Simulated scan of single mutants.
Amino acid sequence: MFYYIIDLLGTVAFTISGVMVAMNKRLDAFGIFIIGFVTALGGGTVRDILLGVKPVTWLINSTYMYVVIGTVLFAVFFRSKLKYLNISLFLFDTIGIGLYTVVGVEKGIAAGLHPIMCIALGTISACFGGVLRDILCNEIPVIFRKEIYATACILGGISYFVLTLFNIKSNIVFAIPIIVVILVRLLAVKYKLQLPSVYGKEE
């Protein structure tokens, strides 16, 4: 139940993130809903499609759709107040990507995939909603430009498989990679850490 609640909180954070981007682009009401929906559920949908899951998770559990609809309405009506929630939303988003990374990894393991593919699946689960959001809004996805976002998910996935090499309880194996993702993401933002550029210094 705890992780399910965090999952829903992550859905809320991702939805609001999408709504704010859509409103900055001055999209109409339908466009705002679509961007919020894609941001929140896009990563899980891509993951389920890659795994051949039919139907995808949000079609089975309608709670996700209700949460997205309610959050879109909240974000639109209280958009002037959202600036005060930036820190909380960032934390929810960070917890969300940590959880979605491990969920994706475990789904990959259940499907019998190679560890590298499992880590890729976890990263897709956590990040692809934001990628789809940025593409639909005609932006280069943030994770491809500067922020250590997908890298945090990859490190979390690697730590998951390292822990499985030891005799550790399953709940700890589940929790520690989430913490790894969260810490890497927080430290990267706090200290403005970025992946090295292949283009050298800008002139």
Rank of each mutant, 00 (worst) to 15 (best):
Y4A: 13
F33A: 02
I168H: 03
F78D: 03
G44I: 01
V180I: 15
V173N: 09
N61C: 06
T63A: 13
V184W: 01
T11Y: 03
E147G: 10
A175V: 14
T15W: 02
V180M: 02
C127M: 13
K192L: 11
L193V: 14
M20F: 05
M117W: 09
Y149M: 10
V142R: 13
R133T: 09
V181F: 01
K83M: 08
L73A: 15
V72P: 00
L89E: 07
A29E: 12
I49H: 06
N167S: 15
W58N: 07
G70V: 03
A188H: 06
S159R: 00
A175D: 12
T123P: 08
F78P: 07
S159W: 05
K169P: 06
I34W: 00
M23W: 02
G36S: 09
R145H: 09
K81A: 12
A188I: 01
S62R: 14
N24A: 12
A110H: 08
L99Q: 08
V131H: 06
I34L: 15
L155I: 13
A40Y: 06
N61L: 09
V46D: 03
L50V: 09
I60G: 09
G130H: 12
I119K: 01
I158H: 06
L8P: 06
I148N: 02
M117K: 12
P141H: 11
L8M: 14
L187R: 05
R26G: 06
G10D: 11
Y84P: 08
V105M: 00
L163T: 04
D134W: 04
L187I: 14
G31H: 04
V68L: 00
T71W: 01
S170R: 11
K190M: 04
S80E: 15
F92Y: 13
I95H: 08
K54A: 11
G98V: 06
A150P: 04
E202Q: 13
